[in-house]
Write a protein that binds this DNA or RNA. Structure first.
Lengths: 331, 331
DNA sequence: CTATTATTTGTTATCGTTTTCATCAGAAAC
DNA sequence: GTTTCTGATGAAAACGATAACAAATAATAG
């Protein structure tokens, strides 16, 4: 049916071994043979069947990035970092989406178990810490952007507690005492950590925690809008709002704008992620930026190292974040 | 090293053939055997090596979606459609990014040539029509969202000429005669087609085309801002602006807002794509919505059909778009 | 009770590569 | 002129699964 290495061998009047050698540019092969094989390859339009190759070598030089969906444009930079690190070592990065379904996430990990890829990076996993811990014992798995409590897996992320702390602390430094928090009901570790940072910052500044100032919604912008409305209708209104994502913050600001609130003066806003829109949307949003590219790059570097080693590194790497100050904090 | 079907066979006291049969739940196998094999599989933690299986079956049941980058959140729905259609037939969808580099796009297509995937869908290819046409002769390739002139490939897209026409025609229906166009220097077929629609609409309504009303920029929002500024500074200002993407439109509106222009009254705005932000950003943007999910679904359905058939369908399928009317056109 | 069919099994070839090993020619060494 | 080394080659054995075929057993028919 389709052209195989045998056909090339026949056409070039050499053995399949020689063809293989030429294709993998090994040293021990004569000029003539190289010439003949290359000619035959071109003439026949041959391209090697990687299933055969990969089976024999038992490696695919591919790694799989598992994400919830491509919707969060925010993953884009992380993936670029992953691709860069991979390319340097001659690996490709494939992406697959879980659609927020842990069973489908497991199905995708099947590509790893069945050796269709050499390693996998989970960006915001839906599986439990136990499950992932277990799987990571025997397979090349890493996590990025999200850490999981009690999960013995190579992880690259930022310190979300500190990031939340820094953002809220900055608002306090601006003289604010009534700081609202808009977060999500669905608990990812990062949202938990950011909330923790929020509380610590209040504590360290002698501000009492007020549960009325916390709104639990979803990741949608609309949820931010609702959250802001709710917070603005309580007795002792907030004078600043920290949202655990830019999307939520932008939604929140939409309410504020429609309610005639002077953003950056009456109420300060702080977001998280520094998505593209956060510097397009007016007023420009102050936010926490995480080193997306670097996280992606590092996690793949470490993962590839692990694949060579028989003493896999299961550490947690924490990269530094930074505060981006714009109009919504009056900067 | 790792556990193979032989180990399972030994543990279950059956032959490898029986194990294979159980794994693929074939009919001709006894209860006892099924039981024994399943037990052995669980006990050993076996998972089959798909490289072996795929090699033998010469199919992977995977298709590759090749996109420029995951940045355009806009692809997300298309991919969901692709995944749905694929899942129905027992296929997985993998995603890979070209980083706008035609050579890398070719490298990724290598996964198809080397039989690591069974088919590929190009979403906004960087390769030329000739190249793709050639490759599509011998391989399962399809295109989605973008068509290519003189390209003999299965394609699913919308009628971008008509879409541009409809948008501009709507603006004209609102009494506008000076309609600006903000498009891109880098010519994708869709942008060419949308511009063509713009011109046809003017023509059909007896409005003379004025090249001063057309701004050529990039896909960035900032480019829209610049474009709007430029258009607003010409002698005979536009009373409406059609941008070939929502991102550009939002950028353009940013200028209009800062210049104190009354959007939806002084100047109408029309975008394209209906990205998530277009109904978050205030004022809400009127835009052209394309059936992303359906396009993704259809292209995979047709591609999978082609894979079975030896008379591949290389048609161009055009799905209907719709106008979403919001505040920026005074609706 | 034998003949026939149906069901369940195992043996073995096969998918397309890479790689080990043996061979063989030619060059270098003595 | 024999021996030793080198470099280039091919034959054949992997890699881990499936499938074609054959064989064995169980079930049914006569």
């Amino acid at each position: 049916m389709s052209i195989t290495i045998k056909d090339v061998a026949k056409a070039a009047h050499v053995s399949v071994a020689t063809v293989s050698r030429v294709l993998n540019n090994k040293s021990n092969v004569s000029e003539d043979a190289v010439e003949a094989v290359n000619q035959a390859v071109k003439a026949l339009g041959y391209s090697p069947n990687f299933l055969g190759r990969d089976l024999r070598k038992s490696e695919t030089r591919r790694i799989l990035a598992i994400i919830a969906s491509t919707e969060q444009s925010f993953y884009s930079e992380v993936l670029r970092g992953m691709e860069e690190a991979a390319a340097i070592k001659g690996y490709d990065v494939l992406i697959a989406t879980t659609r927020d379904d842990p069973r489908h996430e497991m199905h995708l990990l099947g590509m790893l178990f069945s050796r269709s890829v050499d390693g996998a990076v989970l960006l915001g996993p839906k599986l439990s810490a136990e499950e992932i811990s277990g799987l990571a014992q025997n397979h090349n798995i890493a996590m990025c952007l999200e850490r999981l409590e009690n999960c013995n897996v190579l992880t690259v992320t930022i310190d979300n507690v500190k990031a939340g702390y820094d953002a809220v602390n900055y608002l306090i430094g601006k003289g604010r005492r009534r700081i609202g928090l808009i977060t999500t009901k669905q608990r990812s570790q990062s949202s938990i950590d950011r909330e923790k940072g929020y509380k610590h910052a209040l504590e360290d500044n002698g501000i009492e925690y007020d549960e009325n100032l916390v709104y639990y919604g979803s990741y949608e912008a609309e949820s931010g809008t609702k959250g802001c409305e709710a917070l603005m209708k309580i007795e002792n209104k907030p004078d600043a709002i920290f949202a655990i994502s830019d999307m939520i913050a932008i939604g929140a600001m939409n309410y504020a704008l429609s309610a005639g609130i002077n953003i950056g003066k009456d109420v300060l806003f702080f977001g998280f992620d520094d998505i593209q829109y956060s510097h397009i949307f007016v007023p420009h949003l102050s936010t926490v930026r995480q080193p997306c590219f670097m996280q992606g790059k590092l996690v793949v570097e470490k993962l590839l190292e692990n694949m060579k080693s028989d003493e896999p590194d299961r550490s947690l790497y924490t990269l530094p974040h930074s505060l981006i100050l714009r109009e919504t904090t009056g900067d």
